[in-house]
Design a binder for these strands. Structure first.
Length: 288
DNA sequence: CATTACCTGCAA
DNA sequence: TTGCAGGTAATG
């Protein structure tokens, strides 16, 4: 479930709690398949003793920078959450990894669907992960020209392209739908068919949607929680996602649900035109 | 490129 | 009972 804004929120709320804390033990690990690399027995041997120096994010990866060049990388996939709990808290049956810190608190990695993954990376592993991912859409250096370059020459429809983490990092099903609605673009529009004003509108929409979602602490549909175990508030700001049958906030037309790239996709059939060359209209702010 | 797999819970 | 869910990886 977590996309860029959710993972960013988790990173910030974890950083506020666990910087300079040492991981003294793995208290629980009952789903070894979540350990991507190295092997689970090595993970158990290598992780304890390291201190958390920084907490950050790359794409949808939560990165806990440890000492000695190690990085603990966690991917929450669909239903994962990471939060800090005091010494007395007990993990439930969905919490598959518990790390004990040197102040007695623990970090819980809870994941109902067990799709989440954990990697212990050395510098080379981190570099390989980084280079496998597209640019950060909220990065200071990410300009509209960069987005134009990513779209140019690609006949693929916008939606699968924007979901592809090797093209652009961090967008998922919610924020792609929201961005396309704000930009008034149809998810099936071929990427290379966008006119410059449309590319500019998409750029503005992506950055605006993600920034607003971070401001509201991410979106909670079901499982997402921040590092304090709290739900997010951005789900109240959705303009199209999950609003099938409800009126478009711009034109009142009933929002439709279709399937694109094997994902449930929400659009306004009137605002989001399938052809190029529409006159560019002023941006709208949606609900928030 | 599109299916399928990976998992569990919940709503229709 | 069936279909759907914020994601990716492995297959045809």
């Amino acid at each position: 479930m977590p996309e860029l804004p959710e993972v960013e929120t988790v990173a910030r709320t974890l950083a506020a709690q666990v910087l300079q804390r040492r991981i003294v033990a793995i208290e629980k690990l009952d789903w070894e398949r979540m350990i991507d690399t190295p092997a689970a027995h090595l993970f158990r041997a290598l992780l304890p003793g390291h201190t958390i120096r920084a907490v950050g994010r790359r794409a949808k990866w939560l990165l806990m920078q440890l000492d000695a060049g190690w990085t603990l990388a966690l991917h929450l996939r669909m239903s994962g959450s990471v939060s800090v709990h005091d010494a007395a808290a007990l993990p439930d049956s969905y919490t598959h990894l518990v790390l004990l810190l040197d102040d007695g608190r623990h970090i819980f990695f809870r994941d109902i669907r067990k799709f989440g993954r954990v990697r212990l990376l050395d510098a080379a592993g981190l570099a390989a992960l980084d280079s496998s991912l597209g640019p950060e859409p909220l990065g200071e250096s990410f300009a509209v020209e960069d987005l134009a370059r990513l779209l140019s020459g690609r006949r693929a429809p916008l939606k699968p392209l924007l979901l592809d983490q090797t093209i652009i990092a961090g967008l998922g099903n919610i924020y792609v739908d929201e961005s396309l609605w704000h930009a008034r673009l149809h998810p099936l529009r071929p990427a290379s068919s966008l006119q410059q004003p449309e590319t500019a509108a998409l750029y503005t929409a992506i950055r605006g949607v993600l920034t607003q979602a971070i401001l509201h602490g991410g979106s909670t549909l079901r499982d997402y929680r921040n590092g304090y175990g709290q739900v997010g508030g951005n789900q109240a700001c959705f303009s199209v996602y999950g609003r099938k049958g409800k009126p478009c906030l711009r034109c009142g037309t009933s929002i439709e649900r279709m399937v694109v790239a094997q994902r449930g996709t929400h659009i306004c059939p009137v605002c989001q035109v399938a052809q190029a060359g529409q006159e560019q209209q002023p941006a709208t702010s949606g609900r928030c």
